[in-house]
């Protein structure tokens, strides 16, 4: 009886249920981040990994292609994480960018940003090609995922990639973000992370705001805003170039 009422409430209030479920996942990730990794791996990265794990469970249980969203109880997740709200929220993050401060990053930040977009893309496309993905859409989507885990799905969504390629693309971006978070403090000396300028270069090349801010926080707290400032442009630049210029280049080459 109780379960039926609960199920009905969740089904009829899909989006609200999604808010509660995602909030719970974020809460758990925050605790895991603090207690198990001592803040080394940012909570948001763990939350995304849990999300992907839940998508696996949902996919196995339903046999569908939309992960947890295929289970009627969690259908609201489909709306919350769908294209509309995702793009809406990403556009909103541009509000935090200060144009005057961005100018301070100067040309070296811009060069790092461009390299940080193009280099991972080339690596991603090359790996995708080596593993037998020969169509331009799949190669571009996986390459875009190597830029950040946001650019991947935005690009894939725009050029019409299949869901499994999208998932691969997100997985690439998430693994990259986690690698940046964990390896930055270890590699700080090799990367010469000492000055604001060096942090800007790092922010532009390493991309992924979560990876950069968490990695720099564990290295030297003072450097965080400089790296994050450049990194905030990363998603925008990637979303601009991914489905356009980069896709055209890949399509022309295939």
């Amino acid at each position: 009886m109780m379960w039926e009422i609960l199920e009905k409430a969740a089904k009829e209030n899909g989006l609200v249920t999604a808010f509660a479920v995602v909030g719970l996942v974020m809460l758990v990730s925050g605790v895991v981040s603090r207690k198990l990794t001592f803040g080394r791996v940012q909570g948001s990265a763990i939350a995304i990994l849990i999300g992907l794990a839940l998508a696996y469970v949902g996919g196995k249980m339903s046999g569908g292609s939309k992960g947890l969203a295929d289970l009627a109880l969690f259908s609201g997740v489909g709306l919350m994480g769908g294209n509309m709200l995702r793009d809406f929220a990403i556009v909103a993050t541009a509000f935090e960018v200060h144009a005057e401060e961005a100018k301070k990053a100067g040309w070296i930040g811009a060069i790092a940003l461009l390299l940080g977009t193009v280099l991972p893309f080339i690596v991603g496309v090359a790996v995708a090609w080596a593993f037998g993905y020969r169509d331009a859409v799949s190669m571009t989507t996986i390459g875009a995922g190597a830029i950040t885990y946001i650019v991947g799905p935005v690009t894939g969504g725009a050029i019409g990639a299949t869901s499994d390629v999208m998932a691969l693309s997100i997985a690439t971006g998430v693994i990259k973000a986690i690698l940046v978070m964990v390896s930055t403090p270890v590699a700080a000396k090799f990367l010469r992370l000492k000055t604001p300028r060096s942090a800007m270069v790092f922010g532009g090349l390493a991309g992924t705001v979560s990876g950069v801010s968490a990695g720099l926080a564990a290295t030297d707290r003072k450097l965080v805003p400089y790296g994050a400032l450049v990194a905030t442009f990363h998603t925008g630049l990637g979303c601009l170039l991914g489905p356009s210029l980069l896709f055209f280049i890949v399509r022309a080459l295939t």
Binding site: V22, L49, L52, G58, G59, G81, A171, L179
Partner: peptide, 26 residues
């Protein structure tokens, strides 16, 4: 949180069949 919700509805089952692409690319 929206990105987390997005992760929840990806076709992870199919992605895992793709093998080590994500790891190597990252």
């Amino acid at each position: 949180p929206v990105v987390v919700a997005m992760a929840m509805q990806q076709n992870v089952v199919a992605a895992l069949k793709g093998g080590p692409v994500a790891l190597i690319a990252a």
